[in-house]
Simulated assay, not measured.
Amino acid sequence: MLDHLAVTAENLASGVSYVENALGVQMAPGGQHDYMGTHNQLLGLGIFYLEVITINPEAPKPSHPRWFDLDNISGPPKLTNWIVQTDTLDETLAKSPAGTGTPVKLTRGDLHWQMAVPDDGKLPFDGAFPALIQWEGADHPALRLPDLKCRLKQLHVTHPQADGLRDALSVLDFGDVVSVHQGPAKNLQAEIETLHGIRILE
């Protein structure tokens, strides 16, 4: 199922400001990912959540590429990635496109998970294919976040090879909250219901 959405930015403050201004809410603290040299802040979306994730300038640069192609981020904050949860990461990876990644064990505080991280940090289909995650244990970030009544209504994913992307996505189960369209590469748009009405994050 869909797990969460990722907004990437050149720095955490600009990414958080972008989300808070777009949705009219205040994001919650997140934490640090030592293995990747990144940090984040979070927003609950019901059973899903959203993270702003950026390079942590106070962390040592890792010897490997960071996830979500963060080593090459430039320009304004943007919704760049979506993450799908699986209970069988190895099996799902075997059915996924080449380059989806290699499982890496990760932690943030007392949260533990495995994530498929591409060797070059770049996910298939120009990043339009989702990152894959397997949580260890029943705990999940969405369960810890304040409920600000934000809910994801629809995630639109566009790519010039929409048919190929749909075929690749057929191995995943994320319900009807995600739709794939013909269009520019790696163009994500999220319709989010808020107390201020439907807001668009892209």
Results as ranks from 00 to 15, higher is better:
residue 25 V to N: 11
residue 25 V to L: 10
residue 26 Q to G: 08
residue 26 Q to H: 13
residue 27 M to A: 06
residue 28 A to K: 04
residue 28 A to V: 09
residue 29 P to Q: 08
residue 30 G to H: 02
residue 31 G to N: 05
residue 33 H to S: 00
residue 33 H to I: 02
residue 34 D to H: 09
residue 36 M to P: 00
residue 37 G to K: 00
residue 38 T to K: 04
residue 39 H to T: 06
residue 39 H to Q: 09
residue 40 N to G: 04
residue 40 N to E: 06
residue 40 N to T: 07
residue 41 Q to C: 15
residue 42 L to K: 11
residue 43 L to P: 00
residue 44 G to R: 02
residue 45 L to Q: 04
residue 47 I to V: 15
residue 49 Y to M: 10
residue 50 L to G: 05
residue 50 L to H: 11
residue 50 L to C: 06
residue 51 E to S: 06
residue 53 I to F: 02
residue 53 I to P: 00
residue 54 T to G: 04
residue 55 I to E: 02
residue 56 N to Q: 03
residue 56 N to H: 13
residue 56 N to L: 08
residue 58 E to G: 15
residue 58 E to C: 13
residue 59 A to R: 04
residue 59 A to L: 09
residue 61 K to T: 09
residue 61 K to D: 03
residue 61 K to S: 08
residue 63 S to G: 11
residue 64 H to I: 03
residue 64 H to Q: 09
residue 66 R to L: 02
residue 66 R to T: 03
residue 67 W to C: 02
residue 68 F to S: 00
residue 69 D to T: 07
residue 69 D to F: 01
residue 70 L to W: 06
residue 71 D to C: 01
residue 72 N to E: 14
residue 73 I to N: 02
residue 74 S to H: 15
residue 74 S to V: 15
residue 75 G to L: 12
residue 75 G to T: 09
residue 77 P to V: 03
residue 77 P to M: 07
residue 77 P to W: 06
residue 78 K to Q: 12
residue 82 W to T: 01
residue 83 I to Y: 08
residue 84 V to T: 10
residue 84 V to G: 05
residue 84 V to A: 11
residue 85 Q to L: 10
residue 85 Q to S: 14
residue 86 T to S: 13
residue 86 T to E: 13
residue 87 D to P: 04
residue 88 T to W: 14
residue 88 T to N: 14
residue 89 L to R: 01
residue 90 D to N: 15
residue 91 E to C: 07
residue 92 T to E: 12
residue 92 T to Q: 10
residue 93 L to Q: 02
residue 93 L to K: 03
residue 93 L to Y: 05
residue 94 A to L: 13
residue 94 A to T: 10
residue 95 K to F: 10
residue 95 K to P: 07
residue 97 P to M: 10
residue 97 P to C: 09
residue 98 A to T: 15
residue 100 T to E: 07
residue 100 T to F: 04
residue 100 T to A: 02
residue 100 T to W: 09
residue 102 T to S: 11
residue 103 P to D: 06
residue 103 P to G: 09
residue 104 V to Y: 03
residue 105 K to D: 08
residue 107 T to P: 03
residue 110 D to V: 10
residue 112 H to W: 07
residue 112 H to F: 14
residue 112 H to N: 13
residue 114 Q to M: 13
residue 115 M to D: 08
residue 115 M to E: 12
residue 119 D to C: 06
residue 119 D to N: 15
residue 121 G to F: 06
residue 122 K to D: 06
residue 122 K to C: 10
residue 125 F to T: 14
residue 126 D to S: 11
residue 128 A to E: 06
residue 130 P to C: 12
residue 131 A to F: 14
residue 132 L to I: 07
residue 133 I to E: 00
residue 133 I to N: 00
residue 134 Q to Y: 07
residue 135 W to K: 12
residue 136 E to V: 12
residue 136 E to G: 00
residue 136 E to F: 07
residue 137 G to K: 14
residue 137 G to L: 13
residue 139 D to R: 12
residue 142 A to H: 11
residue 142 A to Y: 05
